[in-house]
Design a protein around this nucleic acid. Structure first.
Length: 415
RNA sequence: GUGGAUGUAGCUCAGUUGGAUAGAGCACCAGGUUGUGGCCCUGGUGGUCGGGGGUUCGAGUCCCCUCAUCCACCCCA
């Protein structure tokens, strides 16, 4: 075979596409309950937008973006995540001038050039929400509540909410100094990866699974103990709201975010069923991003969720909707006259929203019946020469096997 | 970018210490029913054994290279 889907990309075939549709429908419905409105932004943007918002030093910008030059020699990039484009659109259309709090959601493909593995693809799909314009902890609670609610709406039960606060530009440097100071004598004991992390992204050391590193990090200062008054109070209030909403959470002092724009509240929904790429949904505050992209100082919070990962978990929990819309009627024909009649009937019935199908391969009646069965048609209408003469046709119920003659003009009434 | 594993029919997989026209189940097509599906029976279509090179009288099987996929590292949805 000459052409194949690129490494890390997948075709969504008919046998699965309806499952995605069902999933999307439920997600949309739930998000709408929380009064978020859909926004659709382009899947490519100026490269600089992503570099600016995600952060020059992140892995995404450093090595994972699909970047190309267009005919005009401008550097463009397939979006690696959704927030940057949404905030760009928010600013471009002055949505903040029309309403102080803007609640948006999106669905769509994202692109990152990573090595694929379970739960990780190069073109993958996310949905996410962004609430832009408020610093209220109650808004954090709403966003978190929504993410949890979506899981329940889909029937997912095996997941855990991890919660943390990663501070702000006031308190983060203080912790960073303390942390580096604490670790600097221990660097020699760390694994090679952690030595690199120490220089590039020290907090990532908390993710290390090696026992030696975990031991060294045991008493390391964590961000949560260094929060400034504002961040500390914010975090306390978020927890109070979550308690009030009876949402269980696990305070994960080591939870870090990969994108530079995050501040204060950070959360993830994780599922053990996923293997090592266990994050279903990740989010948090990004109070600095809007200003960073040229807007006014505007606090915001959001999350993004991986649709493929949801599908994986749903498959494992066997909660995927298997209901396919199947055929209401298959019309089997014998002869040219019958086929013409069938064509007219079908056009008519489709007008009435009846899903119907007929044979386009000149097959035997037996083969047509097999086809009807394969497509799970509820009923089959058989039109042959005898039936045309009599002005009647045979209507067969495929479940019971019963069949009866029916006048051609009365067929519409049978549904 | 690094490591490990796996590539045989549309799908899931057998294939012995290297041995003759490469198999099974499912799916597909046809017949058993001159105009009736599912179950059953019979038959059929379908494979450059991922690709290339090598060893050998002989390679799906052994060796080398390459490509692809999966899993893991890194990192993230």
């Amino acid at each position: 075979m000459k052409y194949k889907a690129l490494y890390g990309t997948h075709d969504l075939l008919p046998e699965d596409s309806f499952k995605w549709q069902n999933l999307e429908e439920k997600v949309r419905k739930t998000i709408s309950l929380y009064n978020y409105k859909e926004i659709r932004t382009p899947i490519f943007e100026e490269t600089d937008l992503f570099a600016r918002s995600i952060g020059q030093d992140t892995d995404i910008v450093q090595k994972e973006m699909y970047t190309f030059l267009d005919q005009g020699k401008r550097s463009l990039t397939l979006r690696p995540e959704g927030t940057a484009g949404v905030v760009r659109a928010y600013l471009e259309h002055s949505l903040g001038e029309k309403s102080p709090l803007v609640k948006l959601f999106y669905f769509g493909p994202m692109f990152r050039q990573e090595r694929p593995q379970k739960g990780r693809l190069r073109q993958f799909h996310q949905f996410g929400v962004e609430a832009i314009g408020s610093l209220e902890p109650s808004l954090d609670a709403e966003v978190i509540d929504l993410s949890v609610k979506i899981c329940y709406a889909l029937g997912i039960t095996d997941f855990k909410l991890h919660l943390n606060s990663i501070g702000c530009p006031v308190c983060r440097p203080i912790h960073r100094d303390k942390f580096l100071n604490f670790m600097k004598d221990k660097v020699g004991e760390l694994c090679e990866d952690c030595k690199t992390r120490f220089l590039r992204n020290p907090l990532r050391m908390f993710d290390c699974k090696k026992e030696g590193c975990i031991e060294q990090l045991k008493d390391a200062p964590v961000m949560i103990d260094f929060l400034c008054e504002e961040c500390k109070n914010h975090y306390i209030l978020v927890k109070q709201y979550l308690d009030a909403l009876k949402i269980d959470y696990f305070e994960d002092k080591t939870l870090v975010r990969g994108l530079d724009y995050y501040t204060k509240t950070a959360f993830e929904l994780k599922s053990k069923l996923l293997g090592t790429q266990d994050t279903l949904c990740g989010g948090g505050r990004y109070d600095l991003l809007v200003e960073e992209l040229g807007g006014k100082n505007t606090p915001a919070i959001g999350f993004a969720a991986g649709i493929e990962r949801f599908v994986l978990v749903l498959k494992m929990e066997e909660k995927l909707d298997l209901e396919e819309k199947n055929l209401d009627l298959f019309i089997a024909t014998l002869g040219d006259e019958a086929r013409t009649l069938a064509m007219k009937l079908i056009k008519d019935l489709r007008e009435k929203n009846i899903i119907c199908e007929t044979d386009y391969l000149n097959r035997s009646l037996k083969a047509q019946m097999k086809e009807a069965n394969r497509q799970k048609a509820k009923k089959v209408l058989i039109i042959g020469e005898d039936e045309i003469k009599k002005g009647k046709a045979i209507l067969k119920d495929m479940d019971s096997g019963e069949q009866k003659e029916i006048e051609l003009e009365k067929i519409r009434g049978a549904f």
